[in-house]
Design a protein around this nucleic acid. Sequence first.
DNA 1: TCATAAAATAACCATATGGTTATGCAAGAG
DNA 2: CTCTTGCATAACCATATGGTTATTTTATGA
Lengths: 120, 120
Amino acid sequence: MVMQEADQLDAVFSALSDPTRRAILSRLTAGDASVNELRAPFTMSQPAISKHLKVLERAGLIERRVARQQRPARLNAAPMAQAVRWLDDFKQFWAPSFDQFDTLLEDLKRDKTTREADNE
Amino acid sequence: MVMQEADQLDAVFSALSDPTRRAILSRLTAGDASVNELRAPFTMSQPAISKHLKVLERAGLIERRVARQQRPARLNAAPMAQAVRWLDDFKQFWAPSFDQFDTLLEDLKRDKTTREADNE
DNA sequence: TCATAAAATAACCATATGGTTATGCAAGAG
DNA sequence: CTCTTGCATAACCATATGGTTATTTTATGA
């Protein structure tokens, strides 16, 4: 059963709307992790994490393996491409004078990143 | 009261997770529209549309005006930039593999599926 | 075989979400 | 003034979401 494109987008955006799940995805960019490892930064219970993982799995954003007693999660960022593609249609509406000031915007972005780095 | 960056992301992704709201945003790229105009493509009631608009407004994705009896909505795509910036960090996890290893990955996936099928 | 560890599942709870119908209210139009 | 239009708001409902604790499943290891 193949998920409809719209339903897939629903699931992806919905999965990304929770800060815990976004943190889990960010963590997974550093490599696969077991449920307990993913749970470590949080105060919530293990079943809560398992629920979040199920949401991420339904959105196609992670895949599960079996390794010993663990079920490590692996990032699958592919569905994010769909979300980005949808958002790209709006780029012209937030990047005023897209063509001319492209470079300026890049500069601003870099400045912001630098400032954030300074704060840590 | 300024919304926290994370809360803002929550609100944006959450707002985008509904197909009706995405359709409304797409419609607004063609210009401002009244509630009735936005309602036209759908079968749902007017209050339902008003609720969706409230969600979009809380996420900062639209702004409301007052014009005669109408309260037209205007697209404000700026908060989408934040979402795209967050997603950009994951680009490397879906983009690079695409070109060179597309076929290889498909092969691996097929092998895995085959193995799983064998186990059942 | 038995104990332990990792994670899933069940059952439950409070709140959020997405819809409805009914009603209220402000701004033209007659 | 009164009527109508456009929308907001209220009240309600069913289902979804995000958390909990308790229990079960699965795999390792003694």
